[in-house]
Structures are given as C-alpha cells and as structure tokens.
Amino acid sequence: MSAVVGARPVRRRRLSTTAIVFIVLAAVLVLSAVLVTAAGKPFFTAGNLAAVLTLMSILGFVAIGQTLVIIAGSLDLSVPYVVSTASIIGAGVMAQGPAGIVPGVLAALAVSAGIGAVNGLIVTGLRVHGFIATLGVGLIISGWLGTSFQGSFGSAPPEFRVIGATLIAGVPLSTIIMLACAALAALLLHRTRLGHHLYAVGGSASVARLSGVRTKVPVVVAHALCSMLAGLAGLLLLARTSVGSPTIGSQGGYDLMSIAAVVLGGTLLAGGVGSVLGTIGGVAIFAVLDNVMSVLEVNPFLKDFIRGSVIVLAVALYAWRSVQRRPPRFRPGKEAAP
C-alpha cells in the first residue's frame, strides 16, 4: 500500500481567489482615494461611504442569489423582471396604507419565490439550459409587465419608505439587510447538506447523481432563493422610489450586471466553485468604481466602457492564475525530483 500512498510533493499554498478579489478591491479603493483626493475632493467621508454602501445593496441582493444559482451550474437572466414584479406587487398591496406593508412584502416574496421555482423546474424537469429557461421566463414576465402596467403603479406608505432612508451607525439599513442575507447564504453553502449538494451538482451533475445526491432539489431551491432575493431587491427599490415601476429592474440591467459581479467575485461561471464573500467583494468593486466616476463627474457613458474593461481584465486575471497545471516532475537544468 505504501507504494501507492507514498510521500507526495508538498504543494505551495496559493492565495484563494476570494483573497485576490479583496486585494483587487483594496487596490481599487486606494486608487480611487488617490484620484479623488487629487481632484481636490474628499473620499473617505461618512457621506460618501454611505453612498458606496447604498450602491452596493441592490446589486448585492441580486448577486447573492445569482451566486447560488451559478454555483449550482445554472444562470438566472430573469432577475430584472422579478425585481420589477416585486416592486409592482409590493406597491399594489401597500397602496392601502401601513396595514398593507406586511402582506405586501409577503406577497411580493411569495410570487418571486414562485417564479424562481418555475425557473428551477424548467431547468431540471424539462432539461432546458438555464440560459434559455430564465431568458424565456424573463421574457414572459416582461410581456405581462409591459402590457398590464404603463408608468408607475401603487405606492409605498412612509412607514415602509423609512427602510430606504435609515442609517444605523452610518451604514444604510438596506445594506445591513443585504449583508445579513449574504451571511445566511454563506451559512447555507458551507454549513448545510443542501449547500454541499449545490457545489456537488454544479461541479458535476452526473458524479453527484451517481453519489446519490438528488440533483434536482438543490437547483430548484437555488433558483427559488435567487428570485426571492431579487424580490427583496425590488422591495428595497420600492422603499426608495415609493412607487412600483414595471421597468425598474430592466433599467438597472441586473441580469448581466449581477452575473458580472458574481464572476468578478471569483465564482466560476461553469459552476461548482465560488463563494458569497467573493461576490460581495465583486459588488463592492463595482460600487466603488461607480461612486468614483460620479464624484469625478466622468461622462456617464464612459462608465460602461470602464466597467466592461474592468470585468474582462479581472476575469482574465483569475483565468490566468487558475490554469490547472500538474507540477512538473523534472525541471530543466536541475537534477530530477524522485
């Protein structure tokens, strides 16, 4: 036996991708501080940090959910329409006044979760690629939204709008809720059987199946949770804008931007590898970039150009260092290893 399980070369510990994400974030922060200060404006003020954290919250919710779905090996392009739907339903129910807040939230989340479950069932039951299934469901909802609602709809009572305006110790309440959701999602991924199964299914569905994992359940649950989080994002947007809007999700471009943030956070688009913490890092990078460009009054249209370049460069960096190489047995010019 010892011949088989022999000594193996000790591999150097490499920085995890999540660590790299936060190094990139730190670099972006430093660079931003320098640029902003050079322009003669303050960067690390309470107000500006709150602005960055607020920017993070909405995309954060969507990206946390997207992380779960992508780890499971799928994808969710329907999130913008779920965001809009939740804002419409919430505003519709809450239009009756403060008594509508709880039913409104519950209804919006229930409908969102239902849409996610449908996504998951189409992916697993009908074996439709996640890209197509969620693109299709998103289109179906957008047709309904576009037909049934023109302009804003319903309204949120002031008691609900407070959520969008409250700061706790300088941190916006919505960001705190978002971070709490992130912590819960991380717990789910790392401390529960379902979480382990999500990684297993995303890594290789056939291996997971042969190992006795019910491969459909984790995918459906991931989609349902993703849509629920998108629903939460919609409700928080409602708290800020105070009226439901059928286009608020698609205007935000949350489908592609959340996927970009997840990948920027080091999660593998192919599934099976990734973390919520990395995603939060990815979202923060976007938020800092956006904030700096607003403070510096960069032409808004150049923002997209810079965002696009940052995404591609960062992902190229991860791809470059994660190329799996077997450690060589022989090195040129040296006496061979055993």
Partner: peptide, 14 residues
C-alpha cells in the same frame, strides 16, 4: 485570455 465568452462579450457590449 480564457475569459468565458459570456463575460468577454458582455464586457465588449458594455
């Protein structure tokens, strides 16, 4: 650069 085409072309789009 081994960037998944979804991301590479998304970046190009932006």
């Amino acid at each position: 650069a081994k960037v998944p085409s979804f991301i590479a072309t998304l970046g190009m789009m932006l």
